[in-house]
Write a protein that binds this DNA or RNA. Structure first.
Lengths: 161, 161
DNA sequence: CTGCACTTTCACGTAAACGGCAAGGTTGCG
DNA sequence: CGCAACCTTGCCGTTTACGTGAAAGTGCAG
């Protein structure tokens, strides 16, 4: 957030703060402009800025977010509703981050951090369950592969498959 | 297949070969009758038998198959088309199994087995890719959890969260 | 054999996740 | 300034994976 404001405030030569229009941004992460607009409509993200003529403008953190969304959709098969939940948790953590810095009470600070940790753990558990079930299928397939390989050994004609 | 025929041929006391109607079968694996019919329509499975009055009748291998389908859908987010592909591979392997027993030529037998192994490896790779990407997300989340825990340690008020 | 629950096929309805087009506004190069 | 290429919102179409009746047949307990 600090970075974002700084970049928006002045185009220092340190970071040009490239803002992409929707087509370029979508292409960058492997999506279509239509999908990106749809994700916005579903409340999954809002572009960093709008141009004078109301063009959507995306920065690097937006691209990160889009990659995160695409990853969860393509790799894990999460629905947009589930992804929205995960992103909401993430934002709750960021609000916690702000509240953390606003407070000086160590007890309050600890409570915020503990909540954060619990949130991470819930997310990890959700993902881990999927991994475990996938792994179980892989394990079974590996076993069957191994049995086939054993049979090949037993035949032992010296051809290379 | 041998088991199936044997069971259908005679109800030995060893295995009563329970056949379930669609509602009971669907409930058994946590699906709706409509979904099961739809899967059949999509070519994912055919019931073991039909009753006199054309009722679908499912045996235990059908239930296995339904659980496999449900697992891939719920856990991995595979589309029915992708699942159909995996099941098709499985059936190709079973046809290979039959061809294997039909042949006595060791070279031919080895070729069949090698094809089988390659098929298993393709399936494993497909699943492993999903697992890897999910694991990457988990790893990153774990890292962030660890950093939060470190901060909690640094505060060190002796409250239990 | 009668009634009730279950089943069949057929057909239409729906939610999610976009695709695609129309009508009009914006950017920016020449 | 002109104009091609991009963008906007709005809206309707499409695919996937079912849900939900309707109309008619089946299975079985009483």
């Amino acid at each position: 957030m600090t970075e974002k404001n700084q970049a928006a405030a002045s185009e220092t030569e340190t970071q040009p703060a490239r803002l992409l229009r929707i087509q370029e941004a979508a292409a960058e992460v492997g999506l279509t402009p239509r999908s990106v607009r749809y994700y916005e409509e579903m409340g999954l993200l809002r572009p960093a800025a709008r141009s004078e003529g109301d063009y959507r403008l995306y920065d690097s953190t937006d691209l990160e977010r889009l990659r995160f969304i695409k990853g969860l959709r393509d790799d894990a098969g999460f629905s947009l509703a589930e992804i929205a939940q995960l992103l909401e948790d993430e934002e709750a953590r960021e609000r916690g981050h702000a509240a953390f810095h606003a407070s000086t009470d160590p007890v309050e600070r600890k409570r915020i951090l503990c909540e954060r940790v619990a949130s991470f753990e819930r997310q990890i558990e959700t993902l881990q369950r999927k991994i475990d079930r996938l792994q179980a299928i892989v394990d079974e397939t590996e076993g069957r592969r191994a049995r086939s390989l054993a049979k090949i050994e037993a035949i032992g004609t010296d051809q290379p498959c």
